Amino acid sequence: MGDCQYPDCKAAATETWALVPLCEHHREAVRAETAQYYNRKITYHMRHFYMGIMPLIPWSRKE
């Protein structure tokens, strides 16, 4: 699968989030953060991990 696509991470990617290859640590961080967002415990702008991969998510790009 290659390397984790999270900025500055060189770990091996084992899973994906929104089609972005991520290591186990970053995928879990994005998953937990997303759960907090949908449970209204954090705001959209507080999604640090998600924002790190947002430019790589196909449907998030503005082309």
Score class of each variant (00 low, 15 high):
I57H: 03
L56K: 15
K10Y: 09
M46S: 09
W17T: 11
W17Y: 12
T16H: 06
M54W: 05
Q36I: 03
I42L: 10
M51F: 01
K62W: 00
R27K: 15
T16M: 12
T14S: 08
P58S: 06
T43G: 01
M46E: 08
K62I: 00
E63H: 00
G52P: 10
K10W: 04
M51I: 06
C9A: 07
E24V: 08
M51V: 03
Y38K: 15
Y37W: 09
D3A: 03
G52N: 02
R47L: 06
Y6I: 04
Y6E: 15
C23N: 09
A13V: 06
Y6S: 11
Y44H: 15
Y37A: 01
I53C: 01
Y50V: 07
V30S: 06
Y38P: 04
S60R: 12
Q36C: 04
P7Q: 11
T34I: 10
Q5L: 01
T34D: 05
W59C: 11
Q36H: 05
H26A: 14
R47K: 14
T43E: 00
Q36D: 08
A13H: 07
K41M: 02
H25C: 13
M54R: 15
T43K: 04
T16A: 05
H45N: 12
E63G: 04
M54K: 15
Q36E: 07
A12T: 12
P58I: 11
P55H: 04
V30L: 04
I53V: 05
R61W: 00
S60W: 01
K62L: 06
E63L: 07
Y44G: 15
T16G: 08
V20A: 09
E15T: 14
V30A: 02
G52Q: 09
A29H: 10
T16W: 08
I42F: 05
I53P: 04
P55D: 02
V20Y: 15
M54H: 13
K62E: 00
I53T: 03
R47F: 00
R31C: 04
P55S: 05
A29D: 14
F49S: 07
V20C: 07
R47C: 13
L22K: 10
D3L: 14
Y50N: 08
Q5P: 00
Q5S: 06
W17N: 13
H45S: 09
R61S: 02
L22N: 10
S60C: 02
A12N: 06
S60N: 05
T14Q: 13
E63T: 07
T14G: 14
A18S: 08
A13L: 15
C4R: 04
C23W: 08
K41E: 08
Y37R: 14
A12F: 10
Y38W: 13
A32Q: 07
Y50F: 13
E33V: 00
I57L: 05
F49V: 07
H48F: 00
K41G: 02
P58C: 06
T34Y: 11
M1L: 09
M54L: 05
L19K: 11
Y50M: 11
N39Q: 13
E63Q: 05
C9K: 10
S60T: 00
F49M: 13
D3M: 10
P21L: 12
Q36S: 03
V30E: 09
I57A: 02
A35H: 03
Q5M: 11
H45F: 10
W59T: 11
P7T: 05
P55C: 06
K41I: 03
C4W: 06
E33T: 10
C4H: 04
R27Y: 07
E28Y: 11
A11G: 09
